[in-house]
């Protein structure tokens, strides 16, 4: 069965995209990640224009993050004040990101930039996860216990002005680092079609010293709003949000995620992260391969955008 996508302007197989949503949903349920960094490349591999993949993925991530964010809020794991400061930076970052997408599309370099960004981020994150998880697996096998997080350390971050008190996170820090982190993640969200949790959570834990549970909750809270903002901006400035495509991915994703959560209970954390790392590196290699190997067709057609 085929369905015509109004924005991508192509007829696609319903089952294929439900299935893709399902597979990525399964993985995100299994590993507890958003899945945007896997879904966007998959959409591009399957022939969806890169700009439409990025624009549409925002809406899908918002859908998958909503329920998680509400659950975290009920558990009192969301620092609303910190979330709003991050969001302020995020809105600025995504505004810049969406403009960048527009300019790069006009230049005909968006596909290249998105491929390079994915290779870089997936490569770095995949390698770090691979090293971390294999170390943990080795340590648990030899009976060692991992070293705890050193707390109470003061770094250059504490010397910055505009200090704010974040009661829920038990922090008294400058507003500049959260705004900067928010802006960077917002920029990536708009450019790459990701939620950015994979950068936001570690940045909050290691740079801002936010407690882990609150970092996860606040990040989810922020992801919902930032993907909503990028969706709105992509829809108005680039007209690259395909609601029908987003719906297909959402339906598949919700079903897949439920199966993934159940399957995830039976696997150990470090082994899961090792598998995810392998998967991330695989996607990274696939995108990188397309960049360095001579393509069969050197020419490509794209619609003439305004300003060309």
């Amino acid at each position: 069965m085929n369905i015509y996508l109004p924005i991508a302007e192509m007829s696609v197989s319903v089952l294929l995209f439900l299935g893709m949503g399902g597979v990525v949903g399964f993985l995100s349920g299994l590993f507890g990640v958003g899945g945007g960094f896997l879904m966007t490349p998959l959409l591009i591999f399957s022939g969806i224009p890169a700009a439409v993949a990025v624009g549409t993925e925002g809406a899908q991530i918002a859908a998958t993050s909503v329920s998680g964010a509400i659950a975290q809020y009920r558990r009192n794991n969301v620092d609303i004040k910190l979330g709003c400061v991050l969001l302020f930076g995020g809105v600025v970052g995504s505004l810049i990101g969406v403009q960048m997408v527009k300019i790069l599309r006009q230049m005909g370099q968006f596909d290249l930039v998105i491929a390079l960004s994915y290779v870089t981020f997936l490569g770095v994150i995949g390698s770090l996860m691979l090293i971390e998880s294999s170390n943990t697996i080795r340590k648990t096998r030899s009976g060692e216990t991992g070293f705890g997080r050193r707390s109470g350390q003061h770094s250059w971050i504490h010397g910055l002005p505009f200090k704010m008190r974040f009661q829920r996170s038990k922090l008294y820090i400058s507003a500049i680092p959260p705004i900067a982190i928010g802006a960077f993640v917002g920029f990536l969200a708009a450019m790459m079609g990701v939620g950015g949790g994979f950068i936001m959570v570690p940045a909050m834990i290691y740079l801002l010293r936010v407690p882990t549970s609150i970092a996860v909750g606040t990040s989810l809270f922020q992801v919902v709003f930032i993907t909503a903002v990028t969706t709105l901006l992509h829809a108005t400035l680039n007209q690259t949000v395909d609601i029908i495509l987003a719906l297909l991915l959402m339906v598949g994703g919700v079903i897949g995620a439920q199966i993934g959560v159940v399957a995830g209970v039976r696997l150990k954390g470090a082994e899961l992260r090792f598998l995810l790392a392998a998967l991330v590196l695989l996607v990274c290699a696939r995108i990188g391969w397309d960049l360095v190997v001579q393509p069969a067709e050197l020419y490509s057609i794209s619609p003439l955008l305004r300003g060309q």
Binding site: A59, Q60, A62, A63, T64, S65, V66, S67, I70, A71, T227, A228, T231, L232, L233, H234, A235, T236, Q239, V241, I243, A246, L247, M250, V251, V254
Partner: peptide
């Protein structure tokens, strides 16, 4: 009316997420 379309996309996403949860 791309602004309204964007809002519709967000509403759809939030509704789908809430329904699923």
């Amino acid at each position: 009316n791309s602004f309204l379309y964007g809002l519709l996309a967000i509403l759809t996403a939030v509704a789908a997420g809430l329904l699923a949860s």
